[in-house]
Design a protein around this nucleic acid. Structure first.
Lengths: 250, 250
DNA sequence: CGACTGATTGAACCAGCTCAACTCATGTGG
DNA sequence: CCACATGAGTTGAGCTGGTTCAATCAGTCG
């Protein structure tokens, strides 16, 4: 239940925001991801407070948000666009550990250093918080911490699925699972559609699935030849979802 | 700082435990993993309370603690032995997502269903909690939740490392990283040693590293032939750790 | 001792990789 | 407006790291 008027002690009345640094017009209130991101754990009045420590930022495509191993100065909530999260080996081999979509939170673990690097795949909008400010906010909001922990649990579960995929599935199974997965994740922010946008490069998909770019290309082409899907500009259209599920789902 | 006498409101004095269901003699106080597991977030008096909702259990080798997808009735703290956590595909392919050692917490995500299955590799001792009881306890202890979240963040980080390993490393690199990893993890509960016990089967190692049993065997044998390690009963002795690190570490 | 189970070894095979050529779209500047 | 570079994606051909299948070995237990 959302409460319009502040009711709790720690909601210091209707304080008018005096600082609008880089915020969208109405701050969190009309944020696109408000209702399904971590912030959904917060009431309107609490949100106001969060608003005051947040900084809306636009990040151009292909630029870096943060780098693996660097001190975690900020945490981010993605509100628009796609971010790739990855780990690299010194010789250049790369494993993308996930793609962050709107509503996803970067720096969930709240650790003092980033465990992965993050780069914008498309132009990205984020809601940025200084880690220290966010931490002290979290300390005063146990239900937000619960929410963050739920998100972390979900991430962990996804990571385990991905381990199964990387360690034990064939190229075709990997591709099928990836496409179905992206489809359901997009459904959350747009609406369920048979057209799955793939703004990331083939190399990104390969590095996410533990394959080479050639194998990704060949496998997708073959699935298209077999009328399981149709390749469209910047994505695919899933023609035979049943077949795809039979290939890709556990 | 540990406090011997209860100081806080929610520490209801020195209540004598009237129920010792399955506890070790002195409960949490003299627990082997007390100081580095999640419980380290708790004061003596709080521990007493935790003690009352905990159940010490012995689990024989090769038996199941819980199964992937089942309702998460309990959460566990491993106090002795090794547990394998895994996901399976319907056709029998298996991916071990991790080995839990003493001090590790099972059910960290606090989700209503288990995301993986858990089986004892060796005889295992656990500290078991009914999930509901543990949840309501956590709700009253924000600092325990913080601790659980830290653990979850650490798990997530390990999962990401494992993704990089599964997706982008060679068989030899996988084995080397695994052995060094087990060595440092054991150091936490015993003391640093060049002898790494491997109580799990070759099949377990294979399913953890995304390899076959034959490849594991061949690779370990080759490393032994090259004097990088020595195969001993139920483990290996790391002879040339420098070389191993050159192979295995990022 | 024989039966059984886990680990090792060998030999053939193959899914996915490597290397290389080609296509196609986009951009650029003369 | 065309020549040409550039970069992502596709396609082909051959190769190889790791798998598969099969045999053997080494404990262990009754």
């Amino acid at each position: 239940m959302r409460i319009a008027e502040p009711l709790q002690d720690d909601c210091p009345g209707a304080v008018q925001r005096d600082c609008r640094h880089g915020h969208t017009e109405n701050g969190c209130e009309d944020c696109k991801v408000r209702l399904f991101s971590v912030c959904a754990a917060l009431e309107s009045c609490e949100l106001d407070e969060l608003d005051r420590i947040s900084h809306a930022r636009q990040i151009p495509a292909h630029s870096t948000l943060f780098e693996q191993g660097a001190l975690a100065g900020s945490v981010f909530n993605v509100t628009e666009g796609i971010v790739r999260l990855y780990k690299s080996l010194p010789d250049g081999r790369r494993q993308i550990t996930g793609f962050a979509l709107p509503g996803d939170f970067l720096g969930l673990a709240l650790q003092d250093r980033y465990g992965v690097s993050a780069e914008a795949v498309t132009p990205v909008s984020v809601c940025r918080f200084l880690r220290t400010a966010f931490l002290s906010y979290v300390d005063r909001k146990p239900h937000l911490l619960r929410r963050l922990h739920e998100f972390a649990g979900h991430e962990l579960s996804l990571a385990q699925d991905q381990m199964l995929l990387l360690g034990r599935r064939t190229a075709e199974e990997k591709i099928a699972a990836f496409l179905l997965n992206m489809q359901t994740r997009y459904a959350r922010i747009k609406s369920m559609s048979v057209t799955v946008p793939l703004p990331m490069s083939r190399q990104d998909i390969a590095d996410y699935l533990g394959l080479t770019i050639e194998t990704v290309s060949r496998t997708v082409t073959r699935l298209a030849r077999e009328k399981v899907l149709l390749i469209v500009p910047d994505g695919v259209r899933l023609l035979d979802q049943e077949r795809l599920k039979r290939i890709g789902v556990a």
